[in-house]
């Protein structure tokens, strides 16, 4: 499992916002800043962040819907940013994406059959009979059973959950090795989300698919993912096994996120971290740590002027905070104290 299927090296992406009437006021928004990430074969990797953190951009870059400003993306050690023509097409067979909004991601003028057959037509897979077999098998995999009941339907006849199953089936028809799921359940009800989570786990266990699960929901990431990366304003601030992130966080932003999650049911978050600045004015970017302005623990000179880098704090656990270990130790001690250990 420890051989990465996907590697990104020093990935940068910025967007320019539209300026005002006279072209003034254009702003440069950092979507991704120096992103180095390895995703291992057969794992579900969770990319967690708030809106505007660049998490969706990352998925779009990997699937070549957009190009980065600079950097490398290696899929099976092949530089995918250089792919053209036939080789790009065969790459597209290997990597697929599921979008957030099932109401927008399916063409309303096509039936379920048309939608699911299209990938096979594009890549000229199978004859008529084989295609039908693949279709029925895929539909069963995503819980659209019996397939014959759904195959003639148009999307407007389906519920949100059924639509998302169709979208997942479309992504899986070609049996890709790598699946990007961009907030696939954030618009669905809890009971439906849970059904889809099971489908993803099944993909991983039965078909060995590697999944990049992009989400803002820490509970979902914790449930589904082997490892989690926390993204803030385009910077990867913490990376590690999901249980470790949950119970032994090192970065103040991760701690702030954990604080904000509703504590519901049994919850293993050790303590209230209190790393978020209550009052803050959003303003210009600083040269230093992206979280500087909202961080309760920030130290004036260093944090505002120097950009911290991702360092290994425990085996397989990375964090990018100058004072991460210090804060971590302090927090864990007070948690232990509170729990009476």
């Amino acid at each position: 499992m420890e051989r990465p299927i996907l590697k990104t090296r020093a990935l940068y992406k910025t967007y320019l916002t539209k300026g005002g009437f006279f072209g003034g006021g254009k702003k440069r928004i950092v979507a991704l800043h120096d992103l180095n990430l390895d995703i291992f074969r057969g794992e579900i990797f969770g990319l967690v962040g708030e809106s505007g953190s660049g998490k969706s951009t990352f998925g779009r870059l990997i699937i070549r819907l957009e190009d980065p400003d600079k950097g490398e993306i290696l899929f099976e050690d092949m530089d995918i940013l250089r792919l053209r023509g036939d080789r790009l097409r065969s790459f597209r067979r290997e990597v697929q994406i599921i979008f957030q909004d099932p109401y927008q991601s399916l063409n309303p003028y096509l039936s379920v059959e048309d939608i699911l057959k299209e990938p096979l037509q594009i890549h000229k897979v199978g004859d008529k009979k084989e295609r039908m077999e693949i279709l029925e098998e895929t539909m069963s995999m995503v819980g659209l059973v019996p397939p014959s009941a759904y195959i003639k339907a148009y999307t407007h006849q389906l519920s949100g959950g059924q639509r998302q199953r169709v979208a997942i089936a479309r992504a899986m028809v070609l049996r890709p090795r790598f699946l990007i799921a961009d907030e696939p359940t954030s618009m669905l009800d809890a009971s439906i989300s849970a059904q889809l989570f099971d489908i993803f786990l099944n993909f991983k266990e039965t078909y060995g698919v590697t999944i990049l699960f992009i989400t803002h929901n820490l509970s979902a990431a914790n449930y589904l993912c082997d490892r989690v990366g926390v993204l803030y304003k385009g910077h990867l601030v913490e990376l590690g096994r999901s249980q470790e992130i949950l119970t032994r966080p090192y970065h103040p932003y991760t701690m702030a996120l954990l604080d904000a999650v509703p504590k519901f049911g049994r919850c293993d978050i050790p303590t209230e971290f209190g790393t978020l600045q209550r009052q803050f004015e959003g303003g210009d970017e600083s040269l230093g740590c992206p979280f500087f302005k909202r961080c309760q623990r920030a130290k004036m000179v260093r944090c505002s002027n120097e950009l911290p880098v991702l360092l290994e704090v425990e085996p397989g656990h990375f964090s990018s905070c100058f004072y991460g270990e210090e804060i971590h130790k302090e927090v864990m001690e007070s948690a232990a104290c509170r729990l009476g250990i």
């Binding site: 790009l88 067979r93 994406i97 957030q100 909004d101 096509l110 594009i122 979208a167 479309r170």
Partner: peptide, 25 residues
């Protein structure tokens, strides 16, 4: 729209995207 981007991600040609996904809409 995501459904057009999904077609792109599947490797659909420009002609296919225009005729099959844009035109009907």
């Amino acid at each position: 729209r995501p459904f057009v981007e999904a077609a792109k991600a599947l490797g659909a040609s420009h002609l296919r995207i225009m005729m099959r996904h844009l035109l009907p809409n």
